[in-house]
Amino acid sequence: MSEPPFPSSATAHAPSPKVPIPVKVVVAGGFAVGKTTFVGSISEIEPLTTEAVMTRASEGVDNLGAASTSKTSTTVAMDFGRITLGNSDLILYLFGTPGQERFHFMWDELVRGAIGAVVLVDTARLADCFPAVDYFEQRSVPFVVAVNCFHGAVLHSLDAVRHALSISSDVPMFHTDARERTATRDALLTLVQHALVRTRARVGAA
């Protein structure tokens, strides 16, 4: 990256100790799987929505099957919430994002510097989470799989879900209720613990 053309920018961009440290977690999964509910159950603010737009010259055939050489723009809306931690010196952001592949331009940005991801799964529509699982696996992003219990009863055992997703045994998987604050907190705890284990292993191996 080249130097910004402002003489004062180098010092202006130095991290300020007065400002809390931001950390983030990505909440991914298929349509209507409970991402916003999950974020809202623990966020200290009403979940907010922000939009990102990507414009690019489209090559060949897009997802809708239209052949085109013109510019296309994709808009992705993300819900997010925040949790102030510690001595207010740490702020955790939760970004809920749709799982379709055409939104991956946003994920590339989202996972940079992220602690990891919670993949929400509805066992009645298991395949909806495949793109998310593929994405995080391929990029070695720490993730956990939270099976959202929509139907009160457990439809499929966790073993069956793990098998169907062919997820390795070291990826934590558990049932959750996205509406419950404590369940959401435990899901986040499991993710951070998992990320810690992986980071320690990586640092130890280095």
Partner: peptide
């Protein structure tokens, strides 16, 4: 860049380090 806002980002390239993850864990 104009100095009207102070800023702080996490590590953009890497995942948070062990110390930071431990702080998040304790916070949660």
């Amino acid at each position: 860049a104009s100095g009207f806002l102070e800023s702080r980002s996490g590590s953009y390239a890497d995942q948070p380090d062990i110390k930071l993850l431990e702080r998040v864990l304790d916070g949660l």
